[in-house]
Design a protein around this nucleic acid. Structure first.
Lengths: 204, 186
DNA sequence: ATCTTACTTTAGAAAGC
DNA sequence: GCTTTAAAAAGTAAGAT
């Protein structure tokens, strides 16, 4: 029947339009986040896989696209926090997190927990901190993580505290407020993590 | 020597039952002091018992959900109070309504701090959900018994999803064994 | 700066949108 | 999927003092 044929074309066109929309959204958000082209490609692959496995049913295209980008950043070792991703998406942070967990599970992405060290270069450079501060912050993260202080803690807050501590130790002091702003955490969180890390480093 | 299983405490029991009689919730809300009924928000009427402390959601169909009780005995006691209250209002209630336990939430303490990062990888990323940016606990879905365990850095855990009293004990023994086999238990 | 309150996660039932 | 109920775990956040 001609009608059936037309419907197939219509469905195919709609699907094609949706895919194009998703991919352009990934591109737009990736640009806003300043992630390299390679990450956008990984995000596109994840999105297409989710599409092929019918994971979008019952979810928004934008939500899956955003989650694919969030996952791609993590997979490529240059994570963005859910807060940062939510800022460039029209999907609420809560939904991005939920959708990410779902597609991550269904596609078997098996991404390891985010390493706080991966936030150091980006946060430190936007604060104008030197290479020396960055390696000090990295050392603080390693030492305190080895002593079991990382379990359950937010990677961004953990990284922010280490950067704050390192800036003090290297005489390039940034205020808790400045660090808190780039990491998008509160000063209270930095203060709490900072105290534990300083103790772990043996600096009283 | 205190085994982790000995630290198990039931925190909440959810159960369902029915009185075998339709109810006029508007009228019941008037006759039952302390009842909360907002049909625009939720179709169930909320009634709380003080001793034992529990909350019941009473529906127009006569079905009832009881939650917040600290033991299965408390669930029966709280529902018994509610059945009597209804009978006192001349509402016919079945002699001995069947009460089904739907979920038991328990807490326990493994007695050692846990490295959740290592645990996420050791237990298998496919069965684990650990997103410390969103929630500090590691979520582990166990098949036998079929429960969900939340593990925290402190070694404290939460076991939920079980319907039998001994599910928590079995689950705790099993998770301790798995963590120990990984060499990640203290 | 510290305190209080509140929200995040897990499971499950109920009736209806 | 959402709405409501209760409870624990621990981290983070917001508003008040």
């Amino acid at each position: 029947r001609l009608r059936k044929w037309q419907e197939r074309i219509r469905t195919k066109d709609a699907g094609e339009r949706n895919l194009q929309f998703a991919l352009s959204e990934i591109d737009r958000m990736a640009s806003a986040l300043g992630v390299p082209r390679s990450v956008r490609e990984v995000a596109s692959v994840i999105y297409r896989r989710a599409l092929n496995e019918d994971l979008i049913r019952g979810r928004s295209i934008e939500g899956v696209a955003t989650s694919a980008l969030y996952a791609a950043c993590r997979q490529e070792g240059i994570p963005r926090s859910l807060d940062e991703v939510a800022e460039v998406s029209r999907v609420p942070q809560k939904e991005i997190g939920r959708t990410y967990r779902y597609i991550s599970q269904e596609l078997g992405l098996e991404l390891k927990p985010v390493d706080p060290k991966q936030f150091v270069p980006r946060f430190a450079s936007s604060l104008g901190l030197s290479e020396e501060v960055q390696s000090k912050a990295t050392e603080i993260i390693d030492v305190s993580a080895e002593q079991g202080l990382l379990s359950g803690k937010s990677p961004t807050g953990f990284a922010a505290a280490a950067i704050y501590a390192a800036s003090l130790l290297c005489n390039e002091k940034k205020t808790q407020r400045e660090v808190a702003d780039v990491a998008q955490v509160t000063e209270v969180t930095i203060r709490n993590r900072y105290q534990e890390q300083i103790e772990a480093m043996g600096f009283r | 020597m205190s085994a982790p299983a000995d630290s198990i405490e039931i925190q909440n029991v959810v159960a369902s039952t029915g009185i075998g009689q339709e109810l006029d919730l508007e009228a019941l809300a008037e006759d039952l002091p302390g009842a909360d009924f907002n049909p625009d928000n939720f179709p169930g009427l909320v009634y709380r018992t003080q001793e034992p402390k529990a909350a019941a959601l009473i529906f127009r169909s006569g079905k009832i959900v009881c939650t917040g009780a600290k033991s299965i005995d408390d669930v029966h006691e709280a529902l018994g109070i509610i059945f009597e209250k209804l009978r006192g209002l001349s509402i016919p209630v079945d002699e001995d309504p069947e009460i089904t336990v739907q979920n038991i939430v328990s807490s326990a303490d493994l007695g050692h701090n846990l490295n959740l990062n290592a645990l996420a990888i050791g237990l298998g990323l496919e069965d684990v959900e650990y997103e410390p940016e969103q929630f500090p606990g590691l979520v582990y879905r166990m098949d036998e018994p079929e429960v969900v365990i939340l593990l925290f850095g402190s070694g404290k855990i939460v076991i939920t999803g079980g319907k039998r009293t001994d599910d928590a004990k079995t689950a705790v023994e099993e998770i301790v064994k798995r963590i120990d086999d990984l060499g990640l238990l203290g």
